[in-house]
Write a protein that binds this DNA or RNA. Structure first.
Lengths: 227, 227
DNA sequence: ACAAAAGTGTTTCGGCTACACCCATGC
DNA sequence: GCATGGGTGTAGCCGAAACACTTTTGT
């Protein structure tokens, strides 16, 4: 890959990660304070440079590993941001990704060491450059994804109760969802396996645990050709 | 923008356009034969390089103008393709866009001069590199878009009959759609205005022309929070 | 008259919504 | 026994799908 037949202007290529987590019934966002100019000290998404020998996805995985100590993180490409003026420090094209993180599994000390901090999603601070827009679009994509796929395994432990799943979905969509209808809908998908033990920490009656069954990759709802 | 505070590897950045058109009741794709190595002579998407002072969107618009003579073309970003080995000629990161073109309005001579050719969508030749994958994903995105927004104005003349619109949607979705249900659905959106004249070229009875009314930008169907 | 496409009406079905209601348990 | 959250049942509504039917007009 060191030889190249094309002669054209080259660009700095970065990745920026919108890192979602879930804790205490709230959707969270992992942000960092810039350690270099411009905008030193301001809050921003976590990002990094794309090397010559890796894909943008691999660069994002590398960034996420450095920050959280986790591998095999769920990643989705959001879109490219390429306004020449988006970064006052120079012409940087950025590929935005959103990531889903199991907060209970990641390396909290490492996060702290990196100067990063988890923010409640709807209370996060203003971000630098076009990062606010990135977050907005990523959240929209996450909601869309979650309405078709159960992305539980990427945000909460593999054993969970229906009320816990319900709370997760309310956090993702930032709105109330009828608990009874939610339960019926999610059970009708036949992707959950009921376990014999109950979680008794959150109510007197206790709620049965479930886990994803084999066909967990099944799409929740095929987009039909309506038109 | 000539000064830059960052010191990191730089990348060649390209755009590739999946150009959709519609003619003779068929979805079409505009393709070109490569005029340079590698893969000289093979069919490929139309693409170009991103300059230092423009966005990827602007680069795509530039490419589309050079090929079709049209400005203000409907464009949607598909995604970034950044496999270091995707192009044997060197490490090129590509941003894919799909475009919707009014075939009746574009400059056919210019297209021919550029060595480009319209192919029926489901009969197009094998493409170079990862362009087949780009087309597949773009088509999926187009179908998704068309199920929420009436993208008629970007593919057919502004005056059209319901049967013509129906045929367009059958071409986009590559499947049959019940004509009666389609008519009722599209009229129920209240975005079409009935005109007084009929098109008599396609049937004995003739079909009334319609055009988009003021609120043409209205989304066909809000994605509800189902979950 | 009839073929062919435009356009309308009707019935069925399934899923979503909004509730009311029962269940199990700790206090 | 009662408050609390877990879990179930049900009636109504709406939109999609399937398909029968009417309308218009050229030949």
């Amino acid at each position: 890959m060191n030889t190249c037949v094309y002669k054209h202007p080259k660009h700095l290529l970065a990745v920026d990660c919108i890192i979602f987590g879930y804790e205490n019934n709230k959707l969270k966002l992992l942000l960092a304070q810039r350690k270099f100019a411009p905008e030193l000290g301001k809050w921003s998404l976590l990002g990094g440079w794309v090397d010559e020998t890796e894909t943008a996805e691999e660069a994002a995985e590398r960034v996420l590993f450095q920050i959280t100590g986790l591998k095999d993180i769920y990643l989705e490409q959001v879109q490219v941001f390429s306004n020449p003026l988006r970064d006052p420090g120079g012409r940087v094209v950025s590929v935005a990704f959103y990531a889903l993180i199991r907060i209970d599994k990641h390396d909290k000390a490492l996060v702290r060491k990196n100067g990063a901090k988890w923010w409640t999603f709807n209370k996060h601070p203003e971000l630098i450059f076009d990062h606010n827009e990135m977050v907005k679009i990523a959240h929209k994509k996450l909601k869309n994804k979650a309405s078709y796929k159960l992305c539980a395994q990427n945000l909460i432990p593999s054993k969970f109760t229906i009320p816990q799943l319900h709370a997760l979905y309310e956090a993702i969509f930032q709105c109330e969802i009828d608990p009874g209808n939610f339960r019926k809908k999610v059970l009708s998908l036949n992707i959950l396996e009921k376990l014999n033990d109950k979680n008794r920490t959150e109510s007197k009656k206790g709620a049965y645990y479930y886990q994803l069954n084999k066909q967990q990759e099944r799409v929740i709802k095929e987009r039909k050709v309506k038109f």
